[in-house]
Amino acid sequence: MFSSRKKRIKRAVFVHTSLIILAFVILLPVIWMVLTSLKPTVETLRFPPRFMPENPSFQNYLAAWRNMRLGTYFINSLYVALMTTLVAVFFGCMGGYALARFRMKGEKLYLMFILATRMFPAVVFLIPFFIVMRNLRLIDTFSGLIVSYTVFSLPFSIWLLRGFFRNIPTELEEAARIDGCTRLRAFTKIILPLSAPGIAATAVFCFIMAWNEFMFANTLIMSDAKRMLTVALVASIDDFVVRWNELMAGGMITTVPVIVFYIFMQKYITGGLTEGSVKG
């Protein structure tokens, strides 16, 4: 009894120490980013460099927001990501519900198709997309970007939502319909509230996908007024001026919303992931 307790403590110490070290090493790039974002320029140009800022301030955040115009880009990214989420979740509900509830010919093929779309390299789509968007005059528009992002998040959104809808017993819905509800009413009254967490998780996924995307935003958007946040950050490593402290502040501004989402949605993300890509 005593030895087993000793063993348990020993194990707890081992697990905690290794996790603390690992967590520190893993978070180091983020820590370095935060510390740099608090340093005045002179301190970032010190050779050899120092880890901690000596005169920390939030000046760089203000500068990034104003001088780097991150405010504009933030709103652009927010708009595109929200629109993408709206469209992808709406169609995802439709498609996911149909696939969860109806037996259809070619269903398996369709599911395979959905999965397969997630496995093509994005760059392979980019080239024909550019040509199609060019002919539709959608280059350098938010709509062009929203369409592209929807295409990429829709398969995943359908896939996730199908999983959530399937977990809701058919009996509930049937009972409502016996009570005289139409299918749509049964869907909105029963299925939607019950699958709300699933829908929220799907929405977060779509949002983050669009928020983080870089390649399409970099290629399909031309003008400064419509630039996305991630592209603007990378573009700020320009040929003439690189301000690493402001850049890292900008990186934090871009990352923090996503981290907040993750922390709040952690439970569903793990669930969503295992639904979407592990359990099927």
């Binding site: 370095w32 980013m33 991630t230 990378v234 850049l247 890292m248 990186g251 993750y262």
Partner: peptide
């Protein structure tokens, strides 16, 4: 989980 939340463009810059 945090590294996964960092957008890849930002991660690359960091």
């Amino acid at each position: 989980l945090i590294p996964w939340a960092v957008p890849s463009a930002v991660a690359a810059l960091a």
